[in-house]
Simulated scan of single mutants.
Amino acid sequence: MIEAKLTELLERAGEHVDVGPPPLDAMRAGAARRRRRRTVAWSSVSVAAVLAVIGGTTLLTQGSSGVDPQPPVTSRSPGVVAGGTRLVGLGHAAIAVPKAWGTNQVICGTPRTDTVLVDFGITTLCLGLPRAGVESVEVVRGKPKTDFHVDESTEIDGVPAQRQRTTCSQGPINKVTVCSGTVFIPSLDVSFQATSSTSAEEVGRILARIVIVPDLVGVPGYRTIGRNGHQPQGPDYAELLKEAGLKAEFRTRMSPGYPAGMIFSGSPAPGTMVAPGTPVTITVAGR
């Protein structure tokens, strides 16, 4: 009896309540907002994951064609150098290499151990077979080789740079695969050519350590300023140092068997990053 009365009362109350159409638009808008929130959340997670990968290891993957698909991720903080490395460069462009690397450690023009090449002089004409697991980078003025071409445009600390993709080739004798890639900075006229007999990814990691250091300047080389077979002379090098914003100080070594003014050494060594105005001691031959 009570249930029947309750049902009757509810039916009468319902007759006096206006029931409009279902709020479909509001429901759709709410669902869209929820979808957008989920999309933003997933996008944030994806971006964080990508940044974590880039920050952990900067890789240049090599495709089946032997050419890497993209330029290296360049440095984002001018002058920031990782621990355990040293800067080597020319002008205001430099690259951070491990402190354990040597300098100009080559035989017949072929690196024999991990090394940086800068102001490398005359190469002995002989056959140098590459070794597996050796990394190197050469720092030079201008474009490093005649077959350089631009595959990608990128930036290093806001400075435009050009990238030649990494390619790999196998030696015909000992079958060691060597990969190489190049970054050229036109406005600074400096190139970095990295090679690795480990992997194409290692080439990318090396080139990713290029930085622009406005408050430092690389000591220019003297071995490569000779012309027409003539040995470099002290006055020529002093002029080059002046153009770089450095000071030249001469030291004479009495050497009757050598042409007067021929350069024996420079200190700090070529490629060393120093403050503008730093004196560079040039040791030349005297009579």
Rank of each mutant, 00 (worst) to 15 (best):
L6V: 12
L6M: 12
T7S: 06
T7P: 02
L10M: 04
L10E: 01
E11C: 05
R12W: 12
R12H: 12
A13G: 01
V17T: 03
V19C: 02
G20W: 15
P21I: 13
D25Y: 07
R28K: 14
R33S: 11
A41G: 07
A41V: 10
W42Y: 06
S43L: 14
S46G: 09
V47C: 07
V50K: 09
A52R: 03
G56N: 14
T58C: 01
Q62E: 11
Q62W: 05
V67N: 00
P69D: 02
P71R: 06
P72A: 08
P72W: 10
T74W: 03
T74I: 01
S75D: 05
R76E: 09
V80I: 09
V80Q: 15
A82I: 05
T85R: 04
H92G: 02
H92Q: 12
I95Q: 00
A96T: 12
V97G: 02
W101S: 01
Q105W: 06
I107S: 14
I107P: 07
I107T: 10
C108A: 14
C108E: 07
G109N: 08
P111V: 04
D114H: 00
T123A: 15
T124G: 04
L129R: 06
S136E: 10
S136T: 05
V137G: 01
V140Y: 03
K143F: 10
P144R: 10
P144E: 10
P144M: 04
D147V: 00
H149Q: 06
E152H: 07
E152K: 03
E155S: 10
Q162E: 11
T166H: 00
S169M: 13
S169E: 07
Q170L: 01
P172S: 13
T177A: 03
C179A: 02
T182G: 00
V183L: 05
P186S: 06
P186K: 07
V190T: 08
V190Q: 02
S191K: 11
T195K: 03
T198G: 11
S199L: 04
A200T: 10
G204I: 00
R209A: 01
V213D: 03
D215K: 15
V217F: 09
V217P: 02
G221Y: 02
R223Y: 12
T224G: 06
I225L: 10
G226H: 13
R227I: 13
R227G: 09
R227W: 14
G229R: 12
H230F: 12
H230P: 00
H230Q: 14
H230V: 07
Q231N: 15
P232A: 06
D236Q: 13
Y237S: 02
Y237H: 02
E239M: 12
E239Y: 11
L241E: 05
K242A: 15
G245K: 15
E249A: 11
T252K: 15
M254H: 14
S255K: 11
Y258E: 15
G261K: 08
G261I: 10
G261L: 10
I263K: 06
S265I: 09
S267K: 08
A269M: 13
P270L: 08
P270K: 08
G271M: 02
G271C: 06
G271N: 03
A275R: 13
P276D: 10
P279I: 04
A285S: 14
G286S: 14
